[in-house]
Structures are given as structure tokens and as C-alpha cells.
Amino acid sequence: VTLFVASYDYEARTEDDLSFHKGEKFQILNSSEGDWWEARSLTTGETGYIPSNYVAPV
């Protein structure tokens, strides 16, 4: 399981994006799509795309 933590807050801009807060942890589901990764929030359980430059490895 690949875990990352949010370095910043992010507000979703499309329905496919995932909003999150600094400190929130994610399981990365797919990182092969470039700068936007499909992730599941371990806080909310929601799945969506997050900007990879807003998160760091745990």
C-alpha cells in the first residue's frame, strides 16, 4: 500500500477531483496518469484525482 500525506489544502475544481485538507492521508490507487493521481482518502473514504505536487510520501 502506497501512502501519501497532504502538504496543503486543495479544493476540487471538477467532479473527478478530490478536495482535501493538509495532513489528510491517502492510498494511491493509480499514479500512471502524470501529475494527477487517483487516490482514496483514508479520512473520508472518498476516491478521486489529486494533484501529485500537493502530497508527500508518509
Rank of each mutant, 00 (worst) to 15 (best):
V1N: 12
V1E: 12
V1C: 15
V1W: 13
V1Q: 13
V1R: 11
V1H: 13
V1Y: 14
V1S: 12
T2N: 11
T2I: 13
T2P: 11
T2A: 10
T2M: 13
T2W: 12
L3K: 04
L3Y: 13
L3V: 13
F4G: 04
F4I: 03
F4K: 02
F4P: 00
F4T: 03
F4L: 04
V5H: 04
V5R: 06
V5T: 07
A6K: 00
A6Y: 03
A6G: 03
A6Q: 00
A6E: 01
S7T: 15
S7E: 14
S7I: 15
S7N: 14
S7Y: 13
S7C: 15
Y8I: 09
Y8P: 00
Y8D: 09
Y8L: 10
Y8R: 12
D9V: 03
D9S: 09
D9Y: 05
Y10L: 02
Y10E: 00
Y10K: 01
E11H: 10
E11I: 13
E11R: 09
E11L: 11
E11K: 11
E11D: 09
A12E: 02
A12Y: 03
A12P: 04
A12I: 01
A12H: 05
A12G: 11
A12M: 04
R13K: 12
R13Y: 07
R13I: 11
R13Q: 14
R13D: 08
T14A: 11
T14N: 14
T14L: 09
T14I: 06
T14R: 15
T14M: 11
T14E: 08
E15R: 11
E15C: 14
E15T: 12
E15F: 10
D16N: 15
D16I: 13
D16V: 13
D16G: 15
D16S: 14
D17A: 15
D17Y: 14
D17P: 01
D17C: 15
D17H: 15
D17W: 12
L18Y: 04
L18V: 05
L18Q: 02
S19R: 04
S19I: 01
F20H: 00
F20M: 09
F20K: 00
F20E: 00
F20P: 00
F20D: 00
H21Y: 11
H21P: 05
K22G: 04
K22M: 08
K22C: 07
G23R: 01
G23V: 00
E24G: 02
E24R: 00
E24I: 03
K25D: 01
K25W: 13
K25N: 06
K25H: 11
K25E: 08
K25F: 15
K25L: 15
F26P: 00
F26N: 00
F26T: 00
F26K: 00
F26W: 02
Q27E: 14
Q27G: 02
Q27W: 14
Q27C: 13
Q27I: 15
Q27A: 09
Q27P: 00
I28M: 04
I28G: 00
I28F: 03
I28V: 09
I28Y: 02
I28R: 03
L29E: 04
L29Y: 06
L29Q: 05
L29H: 04
N30L: 06
N30E: 07
N30G: 09
N30V: 07
N30S: 10
S31E: 08
S31C: 15
S31A: 13
S31P: 09
S32M: 12
S32K: 10
S32E: 10
S32P: 10
S32H: 10
S32F: 09
E33P: 10
E33R: 15
E33D: 15
E33Q: 14
G34F: 09
G34H: 11
G34K: 13
G34A: 14
G34T: 12
G34S: 12
G34L: 11
D35P: 10
D35A: 10
D35C: 13
D35E: 12
D35W: 10
D35V: 10
W36C: 08
W36A: 05
W36H: 06
W36K: 10
W36T: 06
W36D: 02
W36L: 07
W37P: 00
W37N: 01
W37T: 02
W37K: 01
E38F: 15
E38C: 15
E38P: 05
E38S: 07
E38W: 15
E38N: 07
E38H: 14
A39E: 01
A39K: 00
A39L: 02
A39C: 05
A39R: 00
R40D: 00
R40Q: 08
R40P: 00
S41A: 06
S41G: 02
S41F: 03
S41H: 06
S41Q: 05
S41D: 03
L42P: 01
L42T: 06
L42E: 07
L42Y: 06
L42D: 04
L42I: 09
T43V: 09
T43S: 12
T43H: 10
T43M: 09
T43F: 09
T43K: 11
T44Q: 02
T44R: 04
T44P: 02
T44S: 09
G45P: 00
G45S: 05
G45W: 06
G45E: 04
G45I: 01
E46W: 08
T47P: 01
T47Y: 08
G48I: 03
G48T: 02
G48F: 05
G48R: 02
Y49H: 07
Y49V: 07
Y49M: 14
Y49D: 02
I50Q: 00
I50G: 01
I50P: 01
I50T: 01
I50S: 01
I50C: 03
I50V: 08
P51M: 06
P51L: 07
P51E: 02
P51H: 08
S52E: 03
S52A: 13
S52G: 07
S52L: 05
N53E: 10
N53Q: 12
N53A: 14
N53Y: 11
N53S: 14
Y54I: 06
Y54F: 11
Y54M: 12
Y54P: 03
Y54N: 04
Y54K: 07
Y54Q: 06
Y54W: 07
V55E: 02
V55A: 05
V55R: 02
A56V: 15
A56S: 13
P57E: 08
V58W: 13
V58F: 12
V58E: 10
V58I: 13
V58D: 09
V58H: 08
